[in-house]
Simulated scan of single mutants.
Amino acid sequence: MNDAIRLRAATPADEPFLIRLRKLTMTAHLERAGEPVDDESHRLRARSNLHIAQIVCCNGEDIGLIKLVRSETGWHLQQLQILPAYQGRGIGTEVIRAMLAEARKARVTVSLNVLHGNPAVHLYERLGFQVTGQTSIELNMTCRP
């Protein structure tokens, strides 16, 4: 990854940032999907799998989050969120490419779910993910090594 972009382990002290990040990046998509957007729902999702959460930092500033669930049979990109002010700069692309390079070395498939209407689907497609299924609210996507 670019020297300006780093990942660090999230801690409980990051919760206020994670809630703000989630609200800024996900509220509109969740509303469109009919999913809850109240403060408690955001808080619970931010706390979910905090032990695997990594904060994306750019020049020492916290700007995003990645949660990657790893198993021997495959990896699941549970969340990737970048603050709106930093979107469109290739940071998400760089984080995903680094993760996919690691997955190729481990010879595992990476899966993810993305809400219908979320423009991130175009990023995922560009990076080699293919739609493998869908529900009423989201697409299931997979990238094979």
Rank of each mutant, 00 (worst) to 15 (best):
L80K: 00
V69A: 10
A28D: 06
L18K: 09
A98V: 08
L77R: 03
T73C: 13
I96R: 05
F17I: 06
H76P: 05
T135R: 12
Q78L: 14
N59P: 05
C58P: 00
R20V: 01
R70T: 13
I137R: 06
A120P: 03
L21V: 06
H116R: 11
N140D: 09
Q78N: 14
R144A: 11
K23E: 13
L24Y: 02
E125K: 08
E102Q: 12
E61W: 03
I5C: 15
D39C: 09
G117R: 09
M26L: 05
T27G: 00
M26V: 00
C58D: 04
G64I: 11
A4T: 14
T109Y: 08
H42N: 08
L44Q: 13
L112W: 10
T142S: 13
Q130K: 08
I52V: 15
R20Y: 06
A28V: 12
E31T: 15
E40Q: 12
E94A: 14
I82G: 09
L100W: 03
L123Y: 07
G128A: 08
D3I: 09
C143G: 03
C143M: 15
L50E: 01
E94R: 13
I5W: 05
K23S: 10
V69P: 02
P84H: 13
A98F: 14
A85L: 08
A4E: 12
H29R: 02
T93L: 03
R126Y: 07
L65T: 03
V121K: 08
L77M: 09
R97V: 12
V69Q: 08
R104I: 07
R45I: 01
T11R: 11
R89S: 09
I96V: 11
T25G: 01
A106S: 12
R126N: 15
Q81S: 09
D39N: 13
V131A: 07
F129T: 05
T73Y: 09
V56M: 02
R126T: 15
M141H: 03
V110P: 11
I5H: 02
E15P: 01
N140Q: 09
I91W: 02
G92W: 00
G34L: 10
P36D: 09
L50K: 01
